[in-house]
Amino acid sequence: MIPFQFITAFLMMAIGIYAFLYKRNLIKLILALNIIDSGIHLLLVSLGYRMELNEPPTAPIYTGYETLKSAMVGPLPQALVLTSIVIGVCVLALAMALTINAYRHYGTLDVRALRRLRG
């Protein structure tokens, strides 16, 4: 069985890295940052997925645990991804604020213009 979820996760990271190297717009870079993060989140979530008794697993809710027929997905990766999403939201908000400020000072969103600090 081909692990499509892992391939997709690494593909997403590669797309993000590509965008970081070849795209010049700051908004696109923010999107690239989020794509990389989403790739890692997909990887983490799919690590917790397990197929037992030939049935897809259910959400990790404690209520009614005894009557479940199939296994639950690992609850820990979901908690990790949730925390990571919260961190991602903070980074996103801060990046947006910085981008707006950069536009105010430089009049453009091109990263090539942001190079007064060098040497």
Binding site: I17, F20, L21, R112, L114, R115, L117, R118, G119
Partner: peptide, 17 residues
């Protein structure tokens, strides 16, 4: 060394990679 520090975000990312 001075020319190496270009100040481009893309260059920083490529150095990290």
């Amino acid at each position: 060394l001075r020319d190496d520090h270009t100040g481009l975000l893309t260059d920083y990312v490529s150095y990290l990679l």
